[in-house]
Amino acid sequence: MSEPLLELNDLHVTFPVSSGAIKAVRGLDLTVHAGEVVGIVGESGSGKSASMLSVLGLHGPAAQVSGSVRFRGRELIGAPAAELRHLRGGRIGMIFQDPMTSLNPALTIGRQLSEAVIVHQKGSKRTAGERAIELLDMVSMPNPKARVRSYPHELSGGMRQRVMIAMAMANDPDLLIADEPTTALDVTTQAQILDVLRRIRTERHLAIAIITHDLGVVAGIADTVNVMYAGRIVERGAVEDVFYRHEHPYTSGLLACLPRLDSRSELVPIGGAPPALDALPPGCAFQDRCPHVSLECMSADVQLAPVGATEAACVNAPIRGAAR
């Protein structure tokens, strides 16, 4: 395989608080190759967004970021602000979680798309305006010539999400980071948005890192899946292997919460709650919620290792008889 487009090595993200420090990301290793779709899944607070915001240097000044984030071989941690501004919206596009709060309510859609083009390409307003219409057409926006004159509040949730995708694609990036791109959308609109992402990926050989709590989303688009818990990846593998041959009990728990159209069985929630990231227990962070916990889990600092078809961070893997 070619050299990674994006490579994260031993990434740590810590936020100082009055009680100590919130360890949002703890030693993350992740690679994304050109044209690959990588899924990052887990419950809220697992460190998914925090890890990807580090790629663009979007954490506040209080955040302590260490380790390595390399894009096309260039180290981004500690890179000059001007270089990061060039990457943001240029070589790396990002779809933020809530388009209604990410779009400017006082500017038309066309104005906002045009600005994204002008900032990076230094073109004329006319050329940027034409590009805005092209971008809306690319994401299958109905009547794009009229929609460039619309304001965000005049669009539906699905339309606003299409605008966010168009803005992220304005300068033909190499990598697209999609943070919960289908949150709060109905299932039909969700399917349409995922279809747009699949089509753009195929047409432009685009790499996508998709962040979501919904395993159903990554099932239909991702090549590989990284399951995160308490700031670490606890299981990683090809999408089919993670769904059908997983080894970590947390992955089993997430899949048991996934609704199935071919079954009337009740969903089984994961008991308890994730640990406080400023007071993590020794050993495995999942120990208080795990049905297979042992004494070794409470002391061993388990790292990812090949287990069966995937890599898993579990002293009891392979776990036979876990919910599948």
Results as ranks from 00 to 15, higher is better:
Gly20Leu: 04
His33Met: 05
Ala222Asn: 07
Thr14Arg: 15
Gly231Asp: 13
Leu30Gln: 14
Pro306Val: 13
Leu113Pro: 05
Ala238Asp: 12
Leu6Thr: 09
Gln190Trp: 04
Val119Glu: 08
Met1Ala: 14
Ala317Pro: 01
Ala230Met: 07
Pro16Val: 12
Ile109Glu: 12
Thr189Phe: 10
Ala24Trp: 08
Val148Ala: 11
Gly308Lys: 03
Ala34Tyr: 00
Val239Gln: 05
Glu83Leu: 09
Ser44Asp: 13
Gln112Met: 12
Phe96Asn: 03
Glu266Ile: 00
Arg232Gln: 15
Ser49Asp: 09
Ala168His: 08
Leu30Phe: 14
Ile77Met: 06
Asp214Met: 10
Ala21Lys: 15
Gly20Trp: 04
Gly78Cys: 11
Ser140His: 15
Val38Lys: 02
Glu180Ile: 13
Leu87Asn: 01
Ser18Gly: 03
Val293Asn: 04
Val163Glu: 09
Ala309Lys: 10
Gly110Tyr: 14
Arg149Trp: 09
Ile40Trp: 05
Leu155Trp: 12
Ala132His: 09
Ala62Asn: 11
Ala323Met: 04
Gln121Met: 02
Val217Asp: 03
Ile77Arg: 10
Glu235Phe: 01
Arg264His: 14
Ser54Gln: 14
Gly67Gln: 13
Glu203Leu: 11
Lys122Tyr: 00
Gly90Gln: 06
Val117Phe: 03
Ala230Arg: 11
Gly47Asn: 12
Thr108Gly: 15
Gly271Leu: 02
Leu113Tyr: 13
Arg147Lys: 15
Asp10Pro: 01
Leu56Ser: 07
Val37Cys: 15
Asn104Gly: 09
Phe15Cys: 06
Ala82Pro: 00
Ile270Gln: 10
Leu136Ile: 13
Leu103Pro: 07
Phe71Val: 02
His153Val: 00
Arg260Gln: 15
Ile200Phe: 01
Leu53His: 07
Ser44Thr: 15
Ala170Glu: 07
Leu185Ser: 03
Gly253Asp: 01
Lys122Phe: 02
Ser124Arg: 01
Ala50Tyr: 05
Arg85Thr: 04
Leu206Gly: 03
Arg149Ile: 01
Ala106Phe: 09
Ile95Ala: 12
Val25Thr: 10
Leu107Asn: 06
Ile77Phe: 09
Gly157Val: 02
Leu5Tyr: 07
Val187Met: 07
Pro152Ala: 08
Glu311Gly: 09
Ser114Trp: 01
Val242Asp: 07
Ile319His: 15
Lys125Thr: 06
Met164Val: 05
His33Ile: 03
Pro269Asn: 10
Gly237Arg: 05
Pro259Ile: 13
Glu36His: 02
Val293Gly: 00
Arg245Tyr: 04
Val242His: 05
Met94Pro: 07
Leu215Glu: 07
Thr224Lys: 15
Arg201Ala: 07
Gly20Ser: 06
Ala62Phe: 09
Leu277Asn: 12
Arg245Asp: 14
Ser66Pro: 06
Tyr250Glu: 00
Thr14Pro: 00
Ala50Asn: 06
His248Leu: 04
Gly57His: 08
Arg72Val: 04
Gly272Ala: 11
Ala170Pro: 06
Ala106Gly: 01
Met52His: 03
